[in-house]
């Protein structure tokens, strides 16, 4: 379940960072972020981030779940921040790849 949290957090952070000009350019080679895309990325990012604690808390309860989620956030940002300068496309793709995988695993586990 915490893998699903990780995938959600990673995808959320990726969306939020692609909405920023600096990182948008790293991935899409275009500095300007089209306004509609920016809004969509922002909304998606915050929604994904808001959803990310849910699996942790469902699985582990409020106490452990919240602590675990804080750790998961750290584990999600670290690869993103380190991948972006070296392999920006891979960093952006990792989220959409990991998310369905994690969802599938969670369904199988349940």
């Amino acid at each position: 379940m915490s893998f699903l949290s990780l995938a959600l957090a990673y995808a959320g952070f990726t969306a939020l960072c692609l909405a920023m000009e600096r990182h948008h350019e790293q991935v899409f080679q275009a500095r300007r972020v089209p306004p509609r895309r920016r809004r969509a990325l922002r909304i998606a990012g915050w929604l994904l981030l808001a959803a990310s604690p849910v699996p942790c808390i469902l699985a582990e309860g409020w106490g452990y779940g919240t602590v675990l989620w804080c750790g998961v956030l750290t584990a999600a940002v670290l690869p993103l921040a380190l991948l972006l300068p070296y392999a920006p496309r891979a960093a952006a793709l990792l989220g959409p790849v990991m998310l369905p995988l994690a969802a599938l695993l969670a369904v199988l586990r349940a």
Partner: peptide, 22 residues
Amino acid sequence: GLHVGRFGGPLLRALFLLSGLA
């Protein structure tokens, strides 16, 4: 309890370890 981090499973310990290294 949070400081000594003896609760929780291996995953949480791994995340604490990662954060400590950070």
